[in-house]
């Protein structure tokens, strides 16, 4: 995978197929980017499981926090990383040790480590780096346009309405 630019269908397929997300580095502070992304993804119907050793045993946004990935007592579809790029290799090792393995490794804005990504991809995982799932969901649903952001997606298809006011779902179908 070219990690400079992802095809829209690649991202849309991931956002469609994933149901549960382990979020490494989830913060309990409500102005941190991880908290904001977690709140958004929960509102969109994803199960988000926070991983943060400093908060283990407590709750963030009503979700029980685990100290490490291997503590989570059920399979997850995706691991979303809010840590520095240099932490990615050891996180990949932790992810690959899970059984069953997640299908997707996602690293947040500014987080990129090509060697770690290569290792995860060699093991069959899909990898996304230097992106935010909240922003990508906003692009693919059209919601992000409400705040003047260029979604770079043109479509004459009907937007997908979700429950409640001002809530759109992912439009592109998986391929």
């Amino acid at each position: 995978m070219n990690h400079d630019r992802y095809p829209d269908s690649y991202i849309a397929n991931i956002l469609h197929s994933v149901k549960s997300i382990a979020m490494i580095g989830a913060s309990a502070k409500d102005v941190r980017p991880s908290y904001i992304a977690m709140k958004y993804l929960l509102a969109k119907g994803y199960e988000v499981i926070p991983v943060n050793p400093g908060q283990a045993g407590k709750e963030i946004l009503g979700q029980l926090v685990y100290a490490k990935l291997s503590d989570i007592p059920k399979p997850v579809d995706m691991v979303d990383v809010f840590r520095g790029s240099d932490a990615l290799p050891s996180i990949v090792d932790d992810v690959l040790a899970l059984d069953p393995r997640p299908q997707v490794l996602w690293a947040q804005l500014t987080v990129r480590n090509d060697a770690a990504a290569e290792k995860a991809e060699a093991a069959g995982l899909k990898v996304v780096m230097n992106r935010c799932p909240k922003i990508e969901y906003g692009r693919h649903s059209g919601e992000i346009g409400w705040n003047g952001v260029n979604s770079r997606i043109i479509s004459a298809r009907k937007p997908v309405l979700q429950r409640g006011y001002q809530a759109l779902g992912i439009r592109a179908r998986p391929q």
Binding site: K39, G138, W146, N147, G148, V149
Partner: peptide
């Protein structure tokens, strides 16, 4: 969530409006 910048969406037309938003994305593109 809207007031805290945690969700995309509209609050009040002094800050954003859906017609304005289409214009904004158009010019950005």
């Amino acid at each position: 969530s809207l007031f805290g910048l945690k969700a995309f969406g509209n609050i009040y037309t002094r800050i954003m409006n859906p017609t304005q938003a289409v214009l904004e994305e158009r010019i950005a593109a």
